[in-house]
């Protein structure tokens, strides 16, 4: 690819090359994501008896639960894009199981995540239509503060933006499901707290939920779209060099490829990015930082 002069090609021809590269990566079964999704859930479940029986201290349980809550979003994200199995296929049930269980540590309803995430892809950086637009901010520290503000009860972003999106889409079924999920989560926390297990519930579920939401908003919503001013296909997302590296940024350094080809499995995105980069540059994509 690097030996080829792309400057003479039309955008249509460039798009064809880009699609050919994408096609090489699409359709591979994401075993690691499936294993990770179910593994995250089982590990998080195992933390409860480990902490209750004092096998590990509460603070260690909190750290582990927070890491699991954050990592768990990624397999769910694969399921949101039907990467594990498409509707009507033989393994569709696995797609749904992974989607639902991997975000339990984060206390995020899968159907809500799927519906709103698709809107984010359709309307990236649109102030009214992108449900994640509320995470936009002028710089990293402001982005963290904005993410904290978005999880407040009367914020404009976060869950309230998701509710508005679902109402606009007429998806009251998803909204009701998400409300029921959240009420059940709160009732579980209350029950644990009033039966003498408030510290464990806070360390293993309540705090990881909040830390996880802020981390995910920062790296999945803010960083790859910053400054979130453009809506065009090749301009609404960027590649970037994360201070915490590709693992610390949850693989979001190559997010531009995900927005252009959402069905490429997460773990194949870096390879696809490097293969596509000259084409993306020729298309005017924001790939100058990596």
């Amino acid at each position: 690819m690097s030996n080829r002069d792309l400057s003479m090609l039309t955008p249509k021809e460039l798009a064809r090359i880009e699609r050919d590269i994408a096609r090489k990566h699409i359709g591979k079964f994401p075993w690691l994501s499936v294993t990770a999704g179910i593994g995250v859930f089982l590990c998080w479940l195992a933390l409860w008896p480990l902490v209750f029986m004092d096998v590990i201290p509460v603070w260690a349980g909190f750290v582990a639960a927070t890491v699991l809550a954050i990592i768990g979003y990624l397999p769910s994200h694969e399921a949101q894009h039907d990467i594990i199995a498409r509707p009507g296929s033989r393994l569709r049930w696995l797609n749904e199981v992974v989607g639902h269980v991997s975000t339990v540590p984060l206390a995020l309803p899968f159907d809500l995540a799927r519906a709103t995430h698709r809107e984010h892809h359709l309307h990236t950086n649109h102030p009214e239509l992108d449900p994640d637009y509320g995470s936009s901010a002028a710089g990293p520290l402001k982005a963290i503060w904005k993410a904290i503000q978005n999880i407040q009860p009367r914020s404009k972003g976060g869950h309230n933006a998701y509710s508005r999106t679902l109402l606009r889409l007429g998806r009251k079924d998803v909204l009701k499901g998400a409300a029921l999920y959240r009420v059940t989560w709160f009732l579980t926390l209350f029950t644990m707290a009033w039966t003498g297990h408030a510290i464990e519930a806070a360390a293993l579920w309540w705090l990881p939920h909040h830390v996880g939401y802020v981390y995910i908003q920062y790296y999945l919503s803010w960083a790859p779209h910053h400054p979130a001013k453009e809506t065009a296909r090749y301009r609404n997302t960027r590649s970037f060099r994360a201070a915490l590296g590709n693992i610390g940024s949850l693989g979001m350094q190559y997010h531009v490829v995900h927005h252009l080809h959402p069905r490429i499995p997460f773990l194949r995105t870096p390879q696809a990015y490097w293969e596509m980069k000259p084409v993306l540059e020729a298309q005017g994509a924001r790939v100058e930082d990596l």
Partner: peptide, 20 residues
Amino acid sequence: SPMIFGLGFLTPLAAQILQS
């Protein structure tokens, strides 16, 4: 919801932190 959360979760949480 903040008041419900304060009574339902934060109150026993603060009490158990004080106790422990």
